[in-house]
């Protein structure tokens, strides 16, 4: 497959592609980490057996190609209950606090195909908070959002998801929340009920609601510090007083001035609370 590639893209060519995409579409890749982006673009070239000239041509002239390209460039790898101890930390460090709010709004930013959103809904159900909750799952990638809305996943993934779920210390069984049909699993309607998936681009879009809880996990690693900074301000503006911000295990607020407006709730899992 990849071995038949004819052309290797350079950083300069990558810059040209970013500029071109910015000019002809709303997709802004300026703040993305360059090396990972370059690998993703190279992957599309290899898949499509294109060279850089073909790629530019397709970006400008081929109907639907820009959306396809964005969907291929973004890294959507995800799982249910990824980092089980993070979910355990939500239960012990965050949920007791959330109980004091009469209505709860959650935002999972960069939710990919929805596994993180359903995991959160299950945790909220078990904490008896889900009935007063509403979760917004957003992503820039239109394809993964379609998958998220369907709530149907390959059954073979559920061995790992079950291990993850059990490691969170939950007292139930993950199979209480899905029905297996042939080689697929569909998430139950009572877990799917209070949520909405929609497109939102963290690099270019703005505040759209006020939340008590925002999680943005394994998304910020794809961005440079400047774009991270923009997004942290967006999150800050989107959080209610004493709202929570949860990042991935390798993502931190500590490199940013805005840290001063947050309190660390869990250092290992990068859970913060807005205090000013």
């Amino acid at each position: 497959m990849a071995k038949l590639t004819s052309s290797h893209i350079s950083f300069q060519e990558l810059e040209d592609i970013i500029e071109l995409l910015g000019k002809v579409s709303g997709f802004n890749l300026v703040g993305y980490s360059k090396s990972s982006l370059k690998r993703r673009v190279q992957r599309v070239l290899d898949l499509e057996r294109m060279d850089i000239v073909d790629l530019k041509n397709a970006i400008v002239n081929v109907e639907g190609f820009r959306t396809y390209l964005m969907n291929e460039i973004t890294v959507n790898v995800t799982e249910m209950f990824r980092d089980p101890f993070y979910y355990a930390a939500l239960r012990t460090d965050v949920f007791p606090y959330l109980e004091t709010f009469p209505r709860l709004k959650f935002w999972s930013a960069g939710c990919s195909s929805g596994e993180e959103v359903y995991s959160l809904a299950i945790m909220l159900t078990e904490a008896r908070l889900y009935n007063r909750s509403f979760i917004y799952g957003t992503d820039v990638n239109s394809h993964v959002l379609e998958v998220a809305k369907k709530a149907i996943y390959p059954l073979k993934n559920f061995k790992l998801y079950t291990e993850n779920y059990n490691a969170t210390g939950s007292f139930r069984s993950l199979s209480d929340y899905y029905t297996a049909m042939y080689d697929a699993a569909i998430i139950h309607a009572d877990i799917r009920k209070n949520m909405l998936f929609s497109q939102h681009n963290l690099a270019t879009d703005y505040v759209f609601n006020e939340f008590q809880f925002i999680s943005c996990r394994n998304v910020l690693i794809y961005f440079d510090l400047e774009l991270q900074n923009r997004i942290f301000h967006l999150f800050y503006e989107s959080l209610s007083e004493f709202g929570f911000l949860c990042l991935g295990t390798k993502e931190t607020l500590f490199n940013h001035e805005i840290m001063a407006k947050f309190k660390v709730i869990n250092k290992k899992f990068n859970i913060y609370q807005k205090i000013k």
Partner: peptide
């Protein structure tokens, strides 16, 4: 390199992490 993530070198001689396949 951190377990579970790819480790990449960026053109400005910094690291970045990636959780792709």
């Amino acid at each position: 390199a951190a377990p579970g993530y790819h480790l990449l070198v960026e053109p400005d001689k910094t690291f970045s992490l990636d959780i792709s396949e």
